[in-house]
Design a protein around this nucleic acid. Structure first.
Lengths: 198, 198
DNA sequence: CGGATGACAGATTTCAGATTCTGTCATCCC
DNA sequence: GGGATGACAGAATCTGAAATCTGTCATCCG
């Protein structure tokens, strides 16, 4: 593996470690990647990595956090658009599902890195869900303000919308995403939810 | 392990093999249980087991099928009751969730046996889901006939209802069922679905 | 002095050889 | 003759010793 960091490079930063870890994870996969591999990629000793991250888990969480933020960045635009709330919610949910499905195929090692954090109850997954719920709550609040949606508590309802669509975005269901009928099933669920919100 | 079958017992039947396998699975767990263990419990050679089941997988499927039918038997009564359809649907979904949750704790080895079939795309899970969807479709059709639910295609909508509640009954989510807020989340999702059906 | 280092202990993983298991089938017996 | 048997091949799993990894820390260096 080509070292990412020349001998004459400046101080070792958390960002450089995260970037190198992402490379190493993509190359070897989360099951094989080691802290020593990361250190080697950076031309430092593995002890130096532990100056910035208390544990391998913490490092993986930082990598997953950044990756998740990047891959779901496009959702905020949909949430903030000025189109009718039901249409926005539909498109937002669809885009979330499409992103996840694409990443399983596109970037399987990083998807696996993120998935592996969930059984361990990492805060990354909970924070990610809370972040997504915030965007849904905003769409719901807009829709309530305009009369497109019936009044309800946006945070609670946002969580219910995400829970009801978890089959289409939760990594635990990733194997089901290759089903030829998955799109129809998604549309049926979303239609039911939109009817319940109207 | 005490043999279930005395030397003077009658012919070896598929049912006896299934019953013995269930015992063996409960005792050793699906990861450790072998066909030889089952044969020993029945005082026969393992070759005899293969006269009735073409493979270990087929045997496990038969066991899981029977177990699932038994543990979900109570749902049919709820589906067939003459209470208002929305109430029936709510109680049916709740009972399904409660059964699954209880079995994870009660009967973890059999729950694991059933869960293990899902990643392998066994027809057992698909058939089970179709059976459940049939009951939901019936509740929906009743509700449509009485005007409690809006008109829609019952089979499609039944599938959507099950998909939207999968977090509360799909084994992939079993770890989440111990969350203290799981009941509130269940009720929020079902309220949204019932609103969408009304 | 702040950051990097590498030796170290204990935990985890690897790997090869030995064992056990699955699934088949020629043979046996009732 | 129909069902049961157990020997067998190839696949999977176990076992235990060696290697590697994680996380710590006394030491070093600029």
């Amino acid at each position: 593996m080509t070292p990412r960091r020349a001998p004459e490079a400046g101080p070792l930063t958390a960002e450089a470690i995260i970037a190198a870890t992402e490379d190493v994870l993509r190359r070897y996969g989360p099951a094989k990647a080691t802290v020593v591999d990361v250190a080697r990629a950076l031309n430092v000793s593995h002890g130096s990595v532990y100056r910035h991250f208390a544990s391998k888990t913490e490092l993986r969480e930082a990598v997953a956090r950044g990756w998740l933020a990047r891959v779901t960045a496009g959702l905020a635009d949909i949430a903030a658009s000025d189109r009718p709330a039901p249409e926005r919610l539909h498109d937002w949910l669809r885009e979330l599902a499409v992103i996840k499905r694409r990443k399983v195929l596109d970037d399987p090692e990083m998807f696996a890195t993120y998935s592996a954090l969930i059984p361990g109850d990492s805060p990354v997954a909970a924070d990610h869900l809370a972040y997504l719920a915030g965007q849904v709550a905003r769409i719901l609040a807009d829709g309530m303000a305009s009369g497109e949606f019936r009044a309800a508590d946006p945070p609670t309802t946002a969580r219910a919308v995400l829970d009801a669509t978890s089959r289409f975005h939760a990594p635990a269901h990733a194997r089901e995403w290759t089903s030829p009928t998955i799109d129809d099933e998604f549309e049926a669920v979303v239609a039911l939810l939109l009817a319940g919100l109207a």
